[in-house]
Design a protein around this nucleic acid. Structure first.
Lengths: 342, 342
DNA sequence: TTGTAAGCGTTATCAT
DNA sequence: ATGATAACGCTTACAA
């Protein structure tokens, strides 16, 4: 099919080695020869064979995006599209490729792990929102596979990129206190994920800073899905909070549904602040006041960090790179601050 | 690092060929030998090297998911997450991998094309929602790269999987006529995509079937983004339609925004029916009456078709496989049919 | 049934 | 500056 190095060499009247040097921009080739080789290579449409190349270099220029089983169900959350877009963009600009693996439940996790990660398919991997005790993390560490986690793992030597969830949540809840709310509930994310924990921590910090006691009946755990937002809000209603911090936009959408069913107006009867700022957050009614995290940038940063790790995997293990990007409160309608201003 | 065939062979006291036969489940190996080899392979954690293997078989077991430049901007539409999930699921169950490529504008399209598609990275590709004249399609055909399109290409010899957009749209608009509407507008998808065209065709068919004249001032073109739904609805308002068929849920969400700004109630003042049935369609207020297309199944079918094409690429080109999956109208609140019933 | 050996398309180490 | 030549790890005739 496609011409090989050999053929280009023959046509150019030089050896394979020379062509290889030209193609890889290595020194020690006479400019005229270099030019002639390029000429021929272009003419015949030469394209290096990826497998042959990586067989000898043991580099594939492919990195994996691993979505742990625990979160495959919420893969349709726009969060992941945005993360993917950031990651692929970064890959594009470094001439790397992204391989996507959803470690779904029905698939044999072990089998996939072996096949993908130990067969030399990948130079490294990005792990999206793994829960804190996901065996995937330990496996990757054990097998010394270079990887970067999206979402921090405080007690393990892993490179990660994360948003500042604690401060984001704190800002959100402080905003509610500033609006005069004192009975503030929260629907948390899954508490086996650091994002869930950290946002809960931020919630607690904000209340404590204002001297508001944290009441357990005002805290219900969700799992980031819209459905869990609905259920969470239903469980919260008997405690009659005046405001709720919902740990993700999708859950907030679910919570809104529950509130409509219960005939409560947002923000008049109850105020809502959530987290993520995915595109629909501003499109729905009421528009969501929410904490923006730079999802696309987290995706591209994860790739950048991974590539830098791959670069200097020359020596021994360097310190884990830990990057926390700032979050920002975006005030819209669901918190009722516009209302209180008037 | 990882042990090789050679090592397993040495430990088992047999030749590489024998180990290869065992690993690949080929005949002509004594059961006892087979057992011993497996034993050792497991012990040392043998995993075949993908590159080495594909160098000789010229098969990578990787297929590409190509998102054309034209649609990378709407990649955060849940449509693509669902498509990806369907595709990766199918890949998982066939031990294939999915490589994701967004052919973004800033990246050099030609360069990426060459690097990904002509370097042997991929066994084949899936192309998502390419516009009808996307050069990507012609390039793939020219280079004889096996691929399946999500979205039909009626006049080209391409394998495709699509939803029945014409009938879906027709059902949607017929439903509106049945509710008594006669002044029905539409916000179309991009008309250089077959999905945009087909849904417009369905709209026309439904009107003509009822003897309602098609008025050009009731047709505005969108591009499937939420923003274009808002703009489209704003342009439509002066023509005062009593109902609108919006060609995607995301655009419908945008349209709702415009209607709120204009103080029109849905469905009381104006009825809406859209297309896709992405998860949020049922979560927002009003819940969207929409045409459900089986997005995940389209993703998995695309993979299945591609794999079947890869199978019998033995002989010459067979006929293009063309699969159109049925669509279904899901009635919720935005069309006002519940209202008319009461 | 098993082993030997050639070859897949590169890169990398030597000589020259 | 250039060219032989030996890997890289596997599959696959072909021989035994």
């Amino acid at each position: 099919m496609s011409p090989t190095l050999e053929e280009v060499a023959r046509l150019a009247g030089v050896s394979r080695s020379t062509v290889s040097r030209v193609i890889n921009d290595q020194p020690n080739v006479r400019p005229e020869v270099r030019e002639r080789v390029w000429q021929i290579a272009r003419e015949v449409g030469y394209q290096p064979h990826a497998a042959a190349r990586s067989l000898v270099t043991s580099r594939t220029h492919v990195i994996g995006m691993l979505i742990p089983e625990a979160v495959t169900t919420l893969f349709s959350d726009p969060f992941f599209s945005l993360l993917l877009r950031g990651a692929t963009d970064a890959c594009n600009s470094h001439q790397y490729q992204l391989m996507l693996s959803l470690l779904t439940a029905n698939a044999d996790r072990q089998e996939i792990y072996q096949r993908i990660l130990r067969s030399g398919y990948l130079d490294g991997a990005i792990v999206a929102s793994a829960s804190l005790d996901d065996p995937l993390i330990s496996d990757l560490l054990r097998d010394r596979i270079p990887f970067v986690s999206v979402g921090r793992h405080p007690n393990k030597p892993v490179h990660y990129v994360d948003a500042d969830n604690v401060n984001g949540a704190r800002m959100a809840v402080e905003h509610l206190t500033r609006l005069g709310h004192r009975r503030i509930a929260t629907i948390t994310g899954p508490l086996d994920m650091i994002a869930g924990q950290d946002r809960l921590t931020g919630y607690r910090q904000a209340l404590e800073a204002r001297g508001i006691p944290v009441e357990e009946e005002l805290i219900v755990e969700g799992d980031f899905t819209e459905a869990s937002g609905t259920v969470g809000m239903q469980r919260l209603l008997p405690a009659s909070p005046s405001a709720v911090f919902v740990a993700s936009d999708m859950m907030a959408i679910g919570a809104l549904k529950a509130l409509r069913q219960a005939d409560r107006q947002v923000p008049q009867d109850i105020a809502l602040v959530s987290f993520d700022d995915i595109p629909i957050a501003s499109a729905i009614e009421p528009a969501l006041t929410t904490v923006r995290q730079p999802i696309e940038r987290m995706g591209s940063m994860a790739v950048e960090v991974l590539l830098s790790v791959l670069e200097d995997s020359s020596g021994e293990e360097a310190l884990a790179q830990r990057i926390v990007l700032p979050t920002e409160l975006v005030i819209r309608a669901s918190c009722g601050s516009a209302l209180s201003r008037s």
